[in-house]
Design a protein around this nucleic acid. Structure first.
Length: 227
DNA sequence: TCATTAAATTGTT
DNA sequence: AACAATTTAATGA
């Protein structure tokens, strides 16, 4: 996707906005290009915008003082994020960086609040999005507490690939096995063993610095198996 | 464009 | 945690 208009065309709630709001969105949302490894937002900065991914791939993460990176989510084109922080008018609790050259739609927080106040469809979308995240968090907590390393890794990958807005096809994400380890709380060795096991079962394919999911349903079954 | 080198990532112990 | 092997990225001819 190249423009905010294209992103909005594929956005379900946009089509349900009253005319004055969809017009305001078209006028006030800014398109910002981020180069690879550039920051969309940084921890500690005030949250003036709510973000949509127009193109590229964005990673939401925090970096510990020793340099280790903890990744929370990978956001493909079509994903929206930041509503939690914008809603509370807080500063960002995390960094968001572009893994590839990316373009962001930046919605001013004032407009975000107007849409929330004036559009039921938008409020519903936000509710569903938050609910989806909660479900994902619960799946992660269960997975972390009840299962062995391999399904935990599978669950983390699902969290990365699992947005409602998932167009078919290229379920590929640029993540090293080390990062998957930090994300899933598993050692790199276990991650390596897990992804190889899953590759052997035809659920995904691994290559240098990236993972490609080829069988999403199979991966779900793999993650769900509690041993 | 190709060869060399450095850095990052993976695979194994 | 450490080490070797492999892949990618950077550099310069």
């Amino acid at each position: 996707m190249n423009t905010i208009d294209e992103l909005l065309r594929t956005t379900s709630w946009f089509h349900e906005l009253p005319p004055h709001l969809s017009e305001a969105l078209g006028n006030e949302a800014r398109l910002v290009a981020i180069e690879a490894n550039g920051y969309v937002c940084r921890r500690g900065e005030p949250s003036h915008f709510w973000f949509g991914v127009v193109d590229g791939l964005v990673k939401v993460c925090n970096t510990a003082s020793d340099g280790r990176v903890m990744t929370f989510a990978g956001l493909p084109p079509g994903a929206w994020f930041g509503e939690g922080t914008v809603l509370k008018r807080e500063r960002w609790h995390y960094d968001a960086t572009a893994l590839r050259p990316s373009r962001m739609a930046c919605v001013p927080s004032a407009l975000f609040f107007r849409m929330l106040d004036e559009s039921t469809a938008f409020a519903r979308f936000l509710l569903e999005q938050v609910n989806e995240r909660l479900g994902q968090l619960m799946a992660t907590v269960q997975s972390d507490r009840l299962t062995e390393p391999s399904p935990r890794v599978a669950n983390c990958l699902l969290a990365m690939f699992n947005r409602q807005l998932y167009p078919l096809g290229n379920a590929e994400i640029q993540l090293t096995q080390e990062e998957i380890g930090y994300l899933s709380g598993v050692t790199r060795q276990k991650v390596n063993a897990a992804v190889r096991q899953m590759e052997a079962q035809g659920l995904l394919s691994i290559s240098y610095g990236r993972v490609t999911v080829t069988d999403l349903d199979g991966l779900r079954r793999f993650a769900a198996r509690v041993s």
